[in-house]
Design a binder for these strands. Structure first.
Lengths: 118, 118
DNA sequence: CCGCATCCTTCTGGATACTG
DNA sequence: CAGTATCCAGAAGGATGCGG
């Protein structure tokens, strides 16, 4: 998979993927969260996928993982300083998403409200 | 593939994917472009993938396709009004990408500059 | 010049069952 | 509680060749 020349491409590849921005959004709005809390806030995600995403974000310096060796063990996640840079992106995405939702936009269907007005 | 509750998810699924933001960036910075011009500006993309992306963006009301029935035929693409909403997202992505690039960030490697400073 | 059809390969997300 | 290991299905990316 040859690298695209665009500098945005590698960043995009890391922060996209099924649940990634949702995780970032939650850590941004709720602050530090435990694994189980994240599971609770995302009812449809599986433990494996959540772990995958968190580990990937950790490798990339975007989230910080803190393990407390208690019984039962507790692990919590928070955004790193760099991870917080992404709030601009996530907020921009959220703004447009909400705006388009209000216009009736749906993937592969476009903007029904606008077409009807023609 | 059950829909995630997050309103950002469908939008994200549309504008991500290997070349999509690059296309949006070019249409945003260069304005209207012909198919061949886009190919020239993205040396590594294949015609099929470019067509796929453009058709998908067209279906979603993000780009406008204009065909001129000349010989040889010319087809040009530009952002729709809604497509221009995305410049906020693309600009945010670009800002962070450039910032992180300056810090030595690489996918799956994190921020070497910061780790060295510890 | 622009694009469609076909086929193939890779990557991703997810289900399920098990562990310290 | 917070994972790990394995396996699988489907989607996405891409190469190639034909067509208006």
């Amino acid at each position: 998979m040859a690298s695209n020349g665009c500098p945005v491409d590698p960043l995009l590849r890391t922060i996209t993927g099924r649940w990634t921005t949702h995780i970032l959004w939650l850590l941004y709005t709720e602050g530090e969260l435990r694994f189980g809390e994240l599971m609770g806030l995302m009812p449809d995600i599986s433990a494996k996928v959540l772990t995958d995403r968190l580990r990937m974000l950790e490798r990339n310096g975007i989230v910080l993982r803190t393990q407390k060796q208690t019984i039962p063990p507790q692990v919590s996640y928070e955004l790193t300083k760099q991870g917080q840079d992404l709030h601009v992106v996530v907020r921009a995405l959220n703004t447009v998403a909400v705006e388009w939702q209000a216009l009736g936009w749906e993937p592969d269907k476009g903007f029904p409200a606008l077409e009807a007005a023609e």
